[in-house]
Design a protein around this nucleic acid. Structure first.
Length: 754
DNA sequence: TCTAGACATCTATAGACAGCATGTC
DNA sequence: CTATAGATGTCTAGA
């Protein structure tokens, strides 16, 4: 099918596609059009990565907007298309990709937790890209523009299988469909075992294809050769002993790049270090210079050990990639890899699910992963491995892609072929009937008035994928009843003759988007607290909710934190478990460890000291701080609702953790361009408030900011200084901070604990 | 007695959404 | 209950 054959699209779209070099649709795209995506028909497309799913989505959205415009005749059609993604990083990536549609008069908006273009004005956009949680939250908070949706696209819909976040996507789609009977639903999925079941659930046509625009060869490396799926073999030059190194070397000889997937952060870092010695020799002077530049920018992001290790590897053309990295680190690495500067990345699965980083070769080095709940190593699913494989081959750039597994014995070679090369991906199974998932969604469904009786609630749940998949008729009902009882018991909703009403607190909890169990824990803690709970007490309280991903206890931590638990017993809120209740006690301690990290951050301890002390990466600090801030915001609202005395203390603890400063700096950090470090330097030089900043001698400010004129000007400008110019200002030597020395002192008090 | 290298033992384990109101080094 | 890489500790042979 040619693009010129397309109809029902805004004027100029086929011509625009031709300009981009698209003449002919890919076979799965043509199938989608034949199935009616451009005519408002529901569609499930189960196709491999990079086989043109995005164009299918664009065609669906463009045609639905065009239809809406026709209906609105004359006026600017007020319909909207919603594109749901699983990750925030993907939201901005997709929005950038859709930006080209602006030439057809479409506005693109983004809505995620940390970035929202225009509140209620979101509805003025023609296309909104959002995470599933954000969409759920928008529904809960009654965003009116959702009533005007014409088309919703759910990207990576196979993630409904995910135990934590899958139910959100599932319930969100079910709600949208129930509320808007004419809504067109397009679901894009990786190839899965039961795409037809998903299609049935959504009353959709199905395109189920394994077609790829670029050849993908899969195989297993064993001994000194790669055994491909088509029976062919490739002998590698004898050189490195290490399997991964041998493959990377071989790829380099062909001027290609390699993506190595491993099963832990530590392995990713170690592997990058080793592979750096392989890539280091293959880099010419010009690339080396550019790599040094990238390494420099990496070092600027933070001065932690992780940052330094990464920069050192990057200088050699290698890198690691995992969730402990700051997001700036991640994007620098991804960008340099796409620019073919970095030749090899050792990564945890972050990269498989995330943004677009294709590579000539993909090596799945570790096919098993530690899983504490299963008691040991578990094999990856075929679906996961296939997703990683899908990163192989850059359409239009590489002649082909290769995806490899590594075997260390002949038996393993055969097992890998059976398990991953020849195997079909697993079916998608809904995880909705788990209490944690239903807890939050049942409350939201009642609070938003979607269901006002028990039977209406059950009827709604019948519209989910879970209901269409289960044979156990009573299961959903009994879990729902458990959940209703829990919500009732905690005062979030009331049951009367089968009628369901959310209480005020219940409404608030639903809108705050926290797990009702988190809210219950916070409420108990706050009721137990006096007017002045300590910051540590509050950090501990939010750290032990199910919404906080706690730090692991490592060997020795047990004693350390048990001691702290007793030392600061009276600061901790709520009912403490005893040392003999093993599971609970351990949970209490890991929450305490997390709380200590937050306290250290709010006590202005240096980032690198924190990463060292808690064995985390710079990205982890950011993540914990973010989550804590969010939960403390919820706690603040709950405290106000309950009218307990601690509201002010909660707010202060929240703002301190947000900025990472102690109380005395709170005024300063509110100034533009002033963060925890600059605020501390200014304060120590005697500039203690924003008012001081305007009135203090400019030489003092310049000295405190270590003589950076431009920075000093920006800071003064930010607080409305009448004459921010630093021309002819001499820095005041007395105000210059003595670097490092002071930070060490500040850490002292805490160090004694360790 | 010292040291390099072989060998044994120990240790630790992926990912990341949400509210709200504005701005890091 | 399952594994494995890397760090650290211990042993041994050779000087």
């Amino acid at each position: 099918m040619k693009v010129t054959d397309l109809s029902g699209l805004p004027d100029g779209v086929p011509a625009h596609l031709q300009n981009q070099g698209v003449e002919e649709l890919y076979p799965p795209q043509a199938e989608a059009v034949e199935a009616g995506v451009t005519e408002g028909r529901n569609l499930v497309a189960s196709v491999p990565t990079a086989s043109g799913k995005t164009l299918v989505a664009k065609l669906a959205m463009l045609s639905s907007i065009e239809r809406s415009r026709q209906r609105g005749r004359g006026g600017d059609g007020n319909g909207t298309a919603l594109y749901i993604v699983p990750l925030r990083a993907l939201a901005s990536e997709k929005a950038d990709e859709f930006a080209e549609l602006e030439r057809f008069g479409l506005d693109i908006g983004v809505a995620t937790g940390n970035y929202q273009s225009d509140g209620e004005w979101l509805g003025d956009n023609d296309v909104v890209v959002a995470t599933s949680e954000k969409v759920d939250s928008l529904i809960r908070n009654g965003a009116t523009w959702m009533q005007d949706l014409d088309c919703v696209v759910a990207d990576e819909v196979h993630l409904v299988d995910d135990a934590q976040r899958g139910p959100t996507l599932e319930v969100t789609l079910a709600k949208l469909r129930q509320r808007l009977p004419d809504l067109q639903v397009v679901a894009l999925s990786a190839t899965v075992g039961n795409a037809e079941a998903v299609a049935d659930w959504l009353d959709a046509a199905l395109v189920d294809s394994t077609w790829r625009p670029i050849d993908l060869q899969t195989g297993v490396h064993y001994g000194n050769a790669i055994h491909f799926d088509d029976g062919s073999q490739r002998e590698l030059a004898v050189g490195s002993k290490n399997q991964t190194a041998a493959i990377v070397e071989d790829t380099l000889a062909d001027d290609g790049s390699t993506l190595v997937f491993v099963n832990s952060r530590r392995n990713a870092e170690a592997s990058a270090r080793r592979l750096a010695s392989v890539t280091g020799g293959a880099i010419d002077a010009e690339d080396r210079e550019r790599l040094r530049e990238v390494a420099g920018r990496i070092r600027e992001v933070s001065d932690t050990e992780t940052s330094e290790d990464l920069a050192a590897a990057v200088e050699q053309g290698a890198a690691f990639h995992h969730a402990g990295l700051a997001s700036e680190h991640r994007s620098l690495v991804e960008e340099a890899f796409r620019d073919r500067l970095i030749r090899v990345i050792s990564a945890t699965p972050t990269l498989a699910a995330g943004v677009n980083t294709p590579s000539r070769r993909v090596v799945v080095r570790d096919w098993q992963r530690y899983d504490g709940t299963a008691g040991g190593m578990q094999p990856l699913s075929a679906l996961e491995v296939h997703q990683m494989f899908g990163r192989a081959g850059r359409p239009g750039l590489d002649p082909y892609g290769e995806a490899l597994l590594l075997a260390s014995s002949h038996g393993e070679l055969e097992e890998l072929f059976d398990r991953y090369i020849y195997a079909d991906p697993e079916p998608v199974r809904s995880k909705l009937a788990a209490e944690p998932a239903l807890r939050t969604h049942v409350l939201a469904t009642v609070a938003t008035g979607f269901a006002t009786t028990r039977s209406a609630l059950l009827e709604f749940l019948q519209e989910t994928l879970y209901a269409s998949q289960t044979d156990e008729a009573g299961r959903l009902e009994s879990v729902t009843d458990n959940v209703l009882a829990y919500l009732d018991r905690n005062g979030f909703l009331e049951r009367e003759d089968g009628g369901l009403t959310a209480t005020r607190t219940g409404h608030l909890v639903s809108q705050l988007y926290v797990d009702p169990m988190s809210a219950a824990e916070i409420i108990h803690g706050l009721e137990d607290a006096g007017a002045e709970p300590s910051a540590l007490g509050l950090y501990h309280l939010v750290s032990r909710t199910p919404d906080m991903y706690r730090l692991y206890l490592r060997s020795g931590d047990d004693e350390t934190y048990t001691e702290i638990a007793y030392d600061r017993e009276d600061e901790l809120l709520g009912h403490a478990p005893t040392e003999f209740e093993e599971g609970e006690w351990e949970d209490w301690l890991s929450a305490l460890k997390t709380a200590k990290l937050l306290e250290d951050w709010a006590d202005e301890l240096d980032e690198d000291r924190i990463t060292e002390r808690y064995g985390v990466g710079p990205g982890d600090i950011r993540g914990k701080v973010d989550t804590a801030e969010w939960l403390l915001h919820a706690a603040e609202r709950l405290a106000a609702e309950l009218d307990v005395a601690s509201t002010t203390a909660v707010r202060e603890a929240r703002i301190r953790v947000k900025h990472g400063v102690s109380e005395e700096l709170l005024d300063l950090v509110r100034a533009e361009n002033v963060g925890r470090k600059r605020a501390r330097r200014l304060y120590d030089a005697g500039v203690e408030t924003r008012q001081d900043l305007r009135e203090a001698p400019k030489s003092t400010v310049l000295g405190a900011l270590r003589g950076r004129e431009k920075t000093a000007e920006n800071v003064l400008e930010g607080v409305g200084h009448p004459a921010p110019s630093m021309d002819d200002v001499e820095r005041d030597e007395a105000a210059i901070p003595e670097d490092d020395g002071r930070d060490e002192n500040r850490a002292q008090a805490n160090l004694e604990d360790f």
